[in-house]
Design a protein around this nucleic acid. Structure first.
Lengths: 140, 140
DNA sequence: GTATTTGCAAATGATTTGCAGTGCT
DNA sequence: AGCACTGCAAATCATTTGCAAATAC
């Protein structure tokens, strides 16, 4: 289990029970919408308010503890900051799966942006399709 | 100038003045938020309502005439459907620029998804950074 | 002890909906 | 003519804000 207390303190955020639970819940699931986070955290900490979830997501995104994953046709999800990767987004069930990023791809991106004098900071690759389990469900 | 009337009719949508103007405005700018679309279209067609803009965007995205471009930390923008490309998103001014997609990158994506038994339908690549003109503005 | 954070309730903002009238084909 | 589309106003849903009480350090 990751040490969320340290992670928070390193980013000048007090280690409250609420924050630790938000991080824990996101980490367990991988990618979650605000609504989903609330539904899960409230099970562990029934008195938490939705406003607290919102305030903390905003704060933790600012501090780069969390990353927003915007998705076509759905609400954004949030994930813990981690090394670059690609998202496979299922358009049926909405699940997001991570795949490691390929080094070659990254080189291509830099080549593209350098020629534009564009100072590249962050890559975001979403591949939309149908996951294996939804394909099965659809076939039946 | 593209023939928006044909484009609409091919997609079973009546060619109303409102829709033609929405398409025209998006095409001219490249990428626009709902708000921006409304601000521009109202100049040409002052009686249009925001509800009509919303209804038509939903409809045209369903019919794949438009594509949603979700962006971290901002409202989604919309563009006309066109061949695959990459978005350079400036985190300062919010402008989005298109770059042609590299064939190699596409092969890599397919390799990644095939191994997952993931049926790939759509690619969405956003590269976030600072555009040339914002770099200049920031330097001064 | 002090500054930050929380939870509540209210405010704001964004998007959707219902419906009567209008316009495309 | 007939159905789809528009515009308005109201409804809903999502997110933000202000403030008094609670908590981390």
């Amino acid at each position: 289990m990751t040490d969320y207390v340290t992670l928070l303190k390193e980013n000048d955020l007090k280690a409250t029970f609420q924050r630790i639970n938000i991080l824990d819940v996101i980490d367990k699931s991988g990618h979650m919408s605000v609504e989903n986070i609330y539904e899960e955290v409230i099970k562990i900490h029934p008195s938490i308010s939705l406003a607290t979830i919102y305030k903390n997501i905003v704060l933790m995104v600012e501090k780069s503890v969390l990353v927003e994953v915007p998705i076509s046709g759905r609400k954004s999800k949030y994930e813990l900051s981690k090394s670059d990767h690609i998202h496979l987004v299922c358009t049926e069930c909405g699940e997001v799966e991570d795949k490691p990023c390929i080094e070659e791809t990254d080189k291509v991106f830099h080549a593209l942006t350098d020629s534009e004098h564009f100072k590249l900071n962050k890559r975001q690759v979403n591949l939309y399709g149908v996951c294996a389990s939804c394909q099965k469900a659809l076939a039946s």
